[in-house]
Design a protein around this nucleic acid. Sequence first.
DNA 1: CGCAAATCTAGACAGTGTCAAGAAATGGCG
DNA 2: CGCCATTTCTTGACACTGTCTAGATTTGCG
Lengths: 217, 217
Amino acid sequence: MTGSEKSYHHGDLRAALLHAAEQELGEKDRDQFSLRSVAKRAGVSHAAPAHHFGDVTGLMAALATLGFDRFLETQKARQAQASAEPHEQLLQAGFGYIDFAMSHPALFRLMFGKSWGEISDVALKASADAAFDHLVQNVAAVTGGDPETDPDTRTAIASVWAMVHGLADLMIGGAPRYLTEAAPDDRDRMLRQIIGSSLPAPEAGPAQGAAADTIHD
Amino acid sequence: MTGSEKSYHHGDLRAALLHAAEQELGEKDRDQFSLRSVAKRAGVSHAAPAHHFGDVTGLMAALATLGFDRFLETQKARQAQASAEPHEQLLQAGFGYIDFAMSHPALFRLMFGKSWGEISDVALKASADAAFDHLVQNVAAVTGGDPETDPDTRTAIASVWAMVHGLADLMIGGAPRYLTEAAPDDRDRMLRQIIGSSLPAPEAGPAQGAAADTIHD
DNA sequence: CGCAAATCTAGACAGTGTCAAGAAATGGCG
DNA sequence: CGCCATTTCTTGACACTGTCTAGATTTGCG
């Protein structure tokens, strides 16, 4: 423990392996990534990860879990330093969504790479669901409807999610040159406009949005 | 040639390898996919693909090129059996976009997996650009603006593309249960509504669309 | 102290992509 | 037609991958 420079037992190898894997994922491509290389980076033998994560898919699942947690944090951090008005909150969550994707493209692709249905890891599913629920709540706060029953709210959830996710995924690939070539200010304005267009009802009038102040949560 | 059952020279191995690779990609996961397995499926030695595609990335590029071509065909096929009205044309292109993604999820992920900037293969870039230009033209036909100069058109392009791409990518993963759980009819209606919400101006009046008949094509 | 459990190492195995050398078929030129 | 350069494919080898098994080392608990 303490220093834990080089003892037979690492102390907290699981976290160290996750850290190494995250760096490895950030530097190299998805196919350059190897279990042995992260083990080497962590300074342990090639078979050490097996005991903590079992399979390589186990490490991926743990990595994706960690990713979803930070994903949610990024969105909340963006929202924290913004107006409490629901519409603005949802907008900032969307920016956080895109921020995370562009900051950690490989991790983002890993998180959304596998099909939702075939997730067996309970921790991963919990973290992913938490991130999803956050989006649902933010949309519901804007529409004012129940996500489970109100069809307009359900459509709005799918709409906003698709728009933000599509922007994130496309900007990772650098596809829409109309977005990537634009100056940062222009880009933010365009994103704002685009995300806003996917919202159910931006506002009927300028005074309408102030109604949220009475409740304000 | 002729029968070409089993001669030393295959005849058209390149096409056969692409076909085998496509099937392999459809059946197995991205990581199960291997150069040797497609060679075995095509009935040739494990080193045969190297001469036609050089690297494994070369095969991937060729496969993605083939994918983008079919991607474009799928959209055009959808549009062909629909009204010539620009708004409806764009909508059908979007449905084709999503159709293709759900029919060939692995290929779709392969096509959009790599960053746009680091594409060196000229054929791949050409096919991808062709697909992108098709979208641009369809959006421009709705807005009536120049894609290069009109900022509203540029924003509309990014908006529509992001929405449709986001829907496609999310539905591959089965993420938005509000969409995947819905009955097919409901889903189409929701998609129509969602895609429509990302459009600049749905329509000013019902008679407006008939103007396309005069020009047609 | 002693021993079971947990943690990590070392070695082996099948499978991967890539490279070099050579065999087999093709096509052009005399 | 005959011959040879070129293309196409095979074979074998190499380093590397993930996973399995056996064993070494450390920890923790009675």
